[in-house]
Amino acid sequence: MAVDSFSAKARKISANIGAHYVDNARNLPWRSPPGGDLPDPYHVWLSEIMLQQTTVGAVKSYFEKFTARWPTVECLAAANEADVLAAWAGLGYYARARNLHKCAVHVAEKMHGIFPRKESELLGLPGVGAYTAAAIAAIAFGKRAVVVDANIERLVARLFAIDTPLPKGKIEIRAAMDAITPKQGAGDFAQACMDMGATICTSKNPKCDICPVQKQCAAFALGNMESFPVKPPKKDKPVRRARFFWIERQDRILLATRPPKGMLGGMRALPDDGWAAGNDGHAMPPIAGKWQVHDNIVQHSFTHFSLEVDLAVYQDEKIATNKDENIWWPLNDIAEAGLPTLYAKAVKWKLKEEK
């Protein structure tokens, strides 16, 4: 698609979306009001990392918890990674949390606590990809950058009826977003488009009757808004099997720290059988003894596979384990352990089963 082939339409879209945002911007804790002072770069970076593949509703409370506990990037850098991972528990995609801490350390130690302003320099930070770099440059520093998240992708694909299937269609969508992004106020415009995609141009049942760019929307004119963007057919997810192990004594439960690399790396968790995205676990218990196995107590969906979990409960009175990585955690305070959602589900099932 040639960018200059719809310049007049682009100007109209940009103006209408910008005007709509002034009166309808979402009130979010990491944002500044439309046309107001630029927000804290630390807040923008933190929120953008949290929002990757996660909804605004889920992120709000985590953002507020993080900024209350670690109000500056230097404070976050000084935190223990284990504490950051525990505070992140429940948000998923835990590599983001490890990169978050790594990036905070980098900014604090190598950049004197000051985030770079240029998109190209932001790309050099741990855990910061093309979208995040563009979003920080535009929103935190007022630079003109082309910001395309999932909401914007859907909005722009519909506005211009871009029918090239994803992921190839992303190139055309970015070119179209480039064409409608103004030279001034790119941060507000990007957030305006995000809001449009989240509240009006939704994936199902879009609210076209209140859309400020309905008249400019090619998909609306065709009458098939939900056909865009064109997605490839979904692949069936493989199903993996895992076994978790419940070892309890004196109102304390045995936890282990997962290996630093791999899924849920560095997180506290129940001992398990070495399950992975590419293979089932071996189902062998960590210690010999009497075990009662409860089959398939948890089903959990990851991006590329699903996991069915058995829970094996240790029933011997004598417990012989003294591995360095083991942690005896008070059951009454298990919520403070920061277990990943998958393991928290298993704990919840066991505690409920005992009642």
Rank of each mutant, 00 (worst) to 15 (best):
A87L: 14
A192Y: 01
A176W: 06
E153Q: 15
T199D: 07
L122W: 08
G113K: 00
I139P: 07
D195H: 00
V146F: 10
D195I: 01
K207T: 12
P167A: 04
P212R: 03
K207N: 15
A150Y: 08
M111G: 00
A104P: 09
P167T: 09
L159G: 03
G185L: 05
K215S: 14
L222G: 13
A104W: 13
A86I: 02
S120Y: 13
A157M: 01
L123K: 14
E153N: 12
E109H: 08
I162S: 06
P206G: 04
G142S: 00
C217W: 07
Y94H: 03
A179H: 06
L222P: 02
A89E: 08
K168W: 05
R158H: 03
G113M: 03
N205A: 15
C217Y: 10
D209K: 14
E153M: 12
M177K: 10
G124N: 12
V156G: 06
L222S: 14
A221L: 14
T164K: 06
A179Y: 08
V148Q: 04
G124H: 10
H112E: 11
D188Y: 04
R96M: 01
Q216F: 10
A219S: 11
G197A: 00
P206M: 08
M196Y: 04
A186L: 09
I180V: 15
G185K: 01
N205C: 11
K143M: 13
V156Q: 08
L91D: 07
R98A: 00
A108I: 07
L91F: 10
A219W: 13
E172I: 05
A150I: 12
A190Y: 02
A130Y: 09
L125S: 04
D163C: 06
A221Y: 02
A192V: 08
E153C: 13
E81G: 11
A219C: 09
Y131H: 03
G127W: 00
T164S: 07
A95Q: 12
H106C: 13
K170M: 13
G124M: 05
L100P: 05
A175L: 15
D83C: 10
E226M: 06
